[in-house]
Design a protein around this nucleic acid. Structure first.
Length: 313
DNA sequence: AAGACGAAAGTGGTTGA
DNA sequence: TCAACAACTTTCGTCTT
């Protein structure tokens, strides 16, 4: 192989183009852009290229360029780039060190520790980043998402947003922001639960964070929540696509305006499951979607009658 | 008995003066 | 800042299967 392929990757279909609504998007690592294939709109221009920075012309060439050590990560306060000194007083062959060397290493370790965590910024990160990793794991985040959250948090910290606020709340807000940015369809309560932060505190921090980082967020749409609810309910992909159909017609007729997206999503799933024949009770769907049975009832009646959908008994 | 239904009262967020 | 408002929740009694 003598010519490197373009560093381009198609994107999961949960993201929609803001201009034409198409889900046919591509991530271009070379230019650091998220681009719509239909209308060419650049949706994001700050993508982080997680790949190697070199070009490879043959397998041997690649090997010769490879470096040792773990990759740089936003999840460690020093990005994993610092040296650490082993606590065991032994040399490379396992022999014990002489007492002079031992005290020398002791001093080196002490200063290494002091140098690594040198200011309040780093101290804050050493507390916040493990928390991000923990909550991310709790919510089933992929590695990349945890990294993204860590990056958001770093930016928040740089802007001095932690002053007078709890680290936990800001961590939770970063997580919630990442969820929304990636259309993961996680409810506020799910994040509150995983982060053990109050609803009020989280929303407050979330607003501040969004404003400070200048991130514009389009409102959540019911479709964003569907995959997560469907999987919690153990429903088939047939029900999934039926639900998406229902939601599409509902959006067209503007039945979703001003209503909570989770309620609409839950109702659409209720109808779809019923039509397909894999019924779920209102209670089950209410539990999975964090809305009440009453809301599901109200929404599904509206949807079914407006869209002329006949339900099975 | 389980699930669905609907009324009534209460809650938290948004909007506009 | 406050009142008005729509959406949503909670609770509970009733109906249907």
């Amino acid at each position: 192989m003598d010519i490197e392929e373009d560093r381009v990757e198609s994107v999961e279909h949960t993201v929609k183009c803001a201009e034409c609504g198409s889900r046919n998007l591509e991530r271009d690592f070379t230019r650091g852009e998220l681009v719509c294939n239909e209308c060419g709109l650049v949706l994001e221009d700050t993508e982080i290229d997680m790949g190697a920075e070199w070009r490879v012309f043959s397998p041997e060439h690649g090997d010769s360029l490879a470096r040792t050590g773990a990759p740089s990560t936003y999840l460690l306060h020093d990005r994993g780039l610092s040296t650490s000194i082993d606590w065991q007083n032994r040399d490379y062959s396992g022999k014990r060190l002489s007492s002079t060397n031992r005290s020398q290493y002791h001093r080196m370790r002490k200063w290494q520790q002091r140098a690594r965590v040198k200011n309040s910024f780093d101290r804050n990160l050493t507390q916040a980043l493990p928390e991000i990793a923990r909550i991310g794991e709790n919510l089933g985040f992929a590695k990349g998402l945890t990294e993204e959250t860590a990056l958001v948090y770093r930016k928040a910290l740089e802007k001095g947003l932690t002053r007078g606020r709890s680290i936990d709340a800001l961590v939770a807000a970063s997580i919630y922001l990442t969820c929304n940015r990636n259309k993961l369809g996680r409810t506020l309560d799910e994040v509150c639960g995983a982060a053990k932060v109050g609803r009020k505190e989280l929303t407050k921090c979330y607003k501040i964070l969004k404003h400070a980082l200048g991130i514009r967020m389009d409102v959540n749409h019911p479709v964003d929540f569907v995959p997560s609810f469907i999987s919690k309910l153990g429903l088939s992909s047939e029900v999934l696509s039926k639900t998406l159909d229902i939601l599409e017609s509902a959006e067209e007729r503007e039945l979703t305006h001003g209503k909570s997206p989770t309620g609409i999503a839950a109702a659409a799933i209720y109808i779809a499951a019923n039509v397909i024949g894999s019924n779920r009770t209102q209670r089950e769907i209410a539990d999975a979607s964090d809305v009440t049975e009453v809301t599901i009832r109200n929404r599904y009646k509206e949807l079914a009658s407006s869209l002329n959908i006949k339900m099975n008994k």
